[in-house]
Design a protein around this nucleic acid. Structure first.
Length: 854
RNA sequence: GGGCGUUUAGCUCAGCUGGAAGAGCGCCGCCCUUACAAGGCGGAGGUCGCAGGUUCGAGGCCUGUAGCGCCCACCA
């Protein structure tokens, strides 16, 4: 046993994280059966930049739960992954190396990344690009792991995965093929939300609304009799894409126009006037133009009213070179050519000039701010273009499936429970199936080719599907069975599906990936369905929902039983901390400044699901708590005789009513804290433990100190020592999930093994040792001691000042409690005489010895 | 427009089955006390957003309302 003279927190992160690694402290024991295992679907952080305090915050919460479950005796399956596929990595590689991917280029085996990113970026082949992605990702992952180890996450570092590695790709492709075989994935040509900068389709879940300046333009359409019909639009550049005007069926102003036609201004195209209930008489002039496609309402009208498609916006966000066939007159074609090739903004500016010159604009445009749909990572508004894409059914078009998924949401145990509402509002608001194909490069390809007919056209309706034993496949470099490479792109041959899957299509399988579905059946049956999915609330609609969809289809079950939803970290101005806002603090910096336990303390003070302010003050408190734990432990172990020859006194030595009262209080605490952890409420667990700990230090230790000094031969001292040791033992265990480093440090002074493999405190032995101890004895005695301290403080005297006469008046019940702790109270107060009297009002009279200079 | 959360001391927040308003920080005063001065003891400081209601009793329950934050929605 070795209690240091000057205990310190310095360097304990390095010492213990190395030791835990060497000892395999957090190694998963896969010989255990499902009911003995607690498995966690850890979020794989995106490896496209750096971790921020938000990560530290939420991962700490999960780690506390993991540590609690481990101490409860569960074999904790706690893997971690790195989300390294997809757009974020592509973007980082483009910037970091100064390259861009051009899939038409051949692979260059000798390619070396430039020492300095060139401007403009150098174009490289898809395979060269992917190699750079893989290289950068390895560096980033090593940095992430170092930070997590420093923070003290008890993950099993032998159980890591990445979302781009071969096994993950195999799992992802296998999952896709199963969906396809069951008809749960399908391909369709349809209007698609499209990012013109990334040049890819995006899914509903990746949208966000942003407020943008715009303007209502009042524009004249013309009836056959020459009378104008004025519509208002924010997208006048889409007039050439107009296929109809629409008004509400009940709108008497426009009823006479239904089933007639009008001609568009400038482009002179005849379009019908139609009725649809979605048209709002209150908006604008009450009649709107339907374009293919200005927004999602256009898509609805187009579909439900069976209108023709007349697209004018290309995949690059510019007006298409060729005018729609219906634009026929020479002036109309000239007007269109004015717009062709222009960006949306340029085209809008020009068309407004043309309308104005032609006298078709009524009044000046009225500036407004309106919300516009953006890809969440995008910089320009989304357009809607018609493309062929892959979809997974998600209830967006199927009421029965939707209801089944809502039922899954009710089956899941949410922490906190109100987070379920976000899931439900999302599922209820779905307006289409889940679009999973992306026209990008670094991701999991679709394991699919298409036959090419004699005319050289790809037959998308009859995909050639890779067999499962070939997975993972890259169809752009591998050949379908029965073909050879020379047939690629040739008539009678084949072509690869060029797309990759959206990152969520793979991330939705993290339970299957981590538990090694179809890769390691034995492991899978021991760990799946998992116990816990921890994650942030902003990705309920993406990660959580899509994971439920996949497990529902594949296994007809939930992927996990519990979901613990963490909040955000807010800066002191109550804004979400994020890199784009420039208000980020680097995690390693604060970990080194305050110590990992202190930062974890701050993190654990944020209630489940609650957005929490980044507060360095809270970290200072955490640090002070950790130091206090060192010192209180040193005192306890020293006074109890640790380091001496004899054994530490055991529970049998506990006799005194005050000691039994402390242990009874402690037993209550253990029940309370255990219940909090069972409810995934790590914050409540810490709060109660901390409260008790300070009472233990400030009140109990002060009350029994003098008695404990009397030495091991004295039975009353032995009782104090035994109580102190029992309490310390429990406190270290209770704190261990939150403050893994300092508790391990103290544990190592006097106990073998790791506190993190020790058992969670059990109430029964504490109750046994306390016998019928009454917690009120402790609180009553502590209260009187506080009163005496107050008297001394008010007289500006040292707390060491002796009391000639101490008299306590109180109710009969309280006096009875105090009698049980009479000797301790007298000694702690340094009173020569103590009288406990029944009387009112309740008060404490303390006659202090005169000061020396009196 | 619908929904969820939140509003308690100057600041950050507890307060879970309704039963005499709490912690830490900050501020003020005191104390080198045989664990701890990167500490300890004590003090000042609040009509618990507002208005009704239920109750012997409401920070906690009900109704309404306001501010803040977030989620969702077919916002021409």
């Amino acid at each position: 046993m070795l209690v240091p003279d000057k205990p310190t927190l310095d360097g304990i992160e390095d010492v213990w994280s190395k030791r835990w690694d060497a000892d395999g402290t957090y190694r998963f024991d896969r010989t255990k059966t499902r009911d003995e295992i607690f498995s966690i679907d850890t979020p794989p952080p995106t490896v496209s930049g750096s971790l921020h305090v938000g990560h530290v915050f939420s991962y700490t919460h999960t780690d506390a739960i993991a540590r609690y479950q481990r101490m409860r005796g569960r074999a904790v399956f706690y893997p971690i992954g790195w989300d390294d596929n997809g757009l974020p990595t592509e973007r980082r590689v483009q910037n970091y190396f100064g390259v861009r991917c051009d899939p038409s280029l051949p692979y260059d085996p000798a390619f070396e990344a430039p020492a300095k990113p060139p401007d403009p970026p150098v174009a490289i082949s898809r395979r060269n690009f992917i190699e750079l992605c893989e290289r950068l990702v390895v560096d980033d992952e090593a940095k992430f792991e170092e930070l997590w180890r420093h923070l003290g996450l008890s993950v099993d570092w032998t159980l890591t995965y990445t979302t781009i590695e071969k096994t993950t790709q195999r799992t992802s492709q296998r999952g896709f093929l199963h969906l396809l075989a069951r008809g749960e994935a399908y391909q369709a040509e349809a209007p698609t939300l499209w990012d013109i900068d990334f040049r890819t389709a995006v899914a509903q879940a990746e949208l966000e609304d942003r407020e943008m300046p715009g303007a209502y333009h009042a524009v004249r359409f013309h009836r056959p009799d020459g009378d104008p019909v004025v519509i208002e639009t924010t997208r006048p550049e889409l007039i050439p894409a107009c296929v109809a005007l629409v008004a509400n069926p009940d709108d008497t102003r426009y009823q006479p126009l239904f089933d007639t036609t009008v001609r568009t201004p400038l482009f002179d195209v005849e379009v019908p006037v139609v009725a649809h209930p979605l048209a709002d008489p209150e908006k604008g002039s009450g009649i709107a133009m339907i374009c293919t496609f200005g927004d999602l309402t256009d898509v609805t009208w187009w579909r439900e009213l069976n209108l023709p498609a007349r697209p004018v916006v290309g995949w690059d966000g510019r007006i298409l070179a060729g005018a729609p066939d219906v634009i026929t007159t020479a002036p109309a074609r000239d007007a269109y050519q004015e717009l062709a090739g222009k960006t949306i903004r340029q085209a809008q500016r020009r068309v407004v000039e043309l309308l104005s010159d032609a006298g078709e604009l009524v009044g000046a445009p009225k500036p407004v701010t309106h919300s516009v749909k953006f890809y969440e990572r995008g910089e320009r508004p989304l357009e809607i273009v018609s493309t062929r894409q892959w979809y997974i059914r998600n209830g967006g078009r199927d009421a029965e499936l939707r209801e089944a998924l809502l039922a899954r949401g009710r089956e899941l145990r949410w922490h906190p429970p109100y987070m379920r509402a976000r899931y439900e509002s999302w599922v209820e608001g779905l307006n289409g199936d889940w679009l999973i194909s992306r026209q990008r490069f670094f991701g999991v390809p679709f394991p699919v080719w298409y036959p090419v007919d004699a005319d050289g056209r790809a037959d998308h309706d009859h995909p050639i599907v890779a067999s499962e034993d070939r997975l993972p496949v890259d169809p752009s470099s591998e050949v379908p069975d029965g073909y050879d490479e020379s047939q690629r792109g040739e008539p009678g041959g084949f072509v690869a599906d060029p797309d990759i899957m959206d990152t969520w299509a793979t991330s939705s399988l993290t339970p299957q990936i981590a538990c090694r579905w179809s890769e390691d059946d034995d492991l899978f049956t021991r760990t799946f369905p998992m116990d816990l999915r921890p994650q942030a609330h902003e990705i309920i609609r993406t990660w959580l929902f899509s994971s439920i969809v996949r497990a529902h289809f594949e296994f007809d079950t939930l992927p996990w039983r519990h979901a613990a939803i963490s909040g955000w970290v807010l800066d002191p101005d109550r804004k979400k901390m994020s890199k784009s806002k420039g208000n980020v603090v680097t995690p390693m910096g604060i970990l080194e400044q305050y110590g990992s336990d202190a930062v974890r303390y701050w993190a654990a003070s944020g209630r489940p699901g609650t957005d929490t302010t980044f507060e360095e003050g809270q970290m200072k408190i955490g640090r002070r708590l950790a130091i206090k734990l060192l010192n209180a432990s040193k005192f306890t172990l020293t006074v109890a005789g640790a380091g001496g020859e004899g054994e530490l006194p055991g529970p049998d030595a506990v006799q005194r009513p005050l000691d039994r009262a402390l242990l009874a209080t402690l037993a209550d605490l253990v029940s309370e804290v255990s219940a909090a952890f069972e409810d995934y409420d790590y914050a409540r667990a810490l709060d109660h433990t901390e409260r008790f700990f300070w009472r233990f230090c400030d009140d109990f230790v002060e009350l029994v100190k003098q008695r404990a000094y009397r030495g091991a031969e004295d039975a009353t001292a032995a009782s104090a020592s035994a109580t102190l040791v029992l309490a310390l033992d429990s406190l270290l265990r209770l704190f261990a999930p939150h403050l893994p480093f300092v508790t391990e440090e103290v544990w190592s002074w006097w106990r073998p093994g790791s506190v993190h493999r020790a058992s969670w405190p059990d109430v029964r032995p504490l109750r046994d040792a306390a016998r019928d101890g009454d917690p009120a004895v402790f609180s009553a005695a502590a209260d009187v001691l506080g009163q005496v301290n107050k008297v001394k403080s008010e007289h500006k005297r040292s707390l060491r000042t002796e009391v000639v006469h101490l008299t306590v008046y109180d109710t009969e019940a309280t006096i009875a409690l105090l009698r049980a702790a009479e000797d301790d109270l007298r000694e702690a107060a340094r009173a020569h005489h103590l009288e406990l009297l029944v009387g009112t009002p309740a008060r404490v009279d303390a006659e202090l010895v005169p000061p020396d200079d009196a």
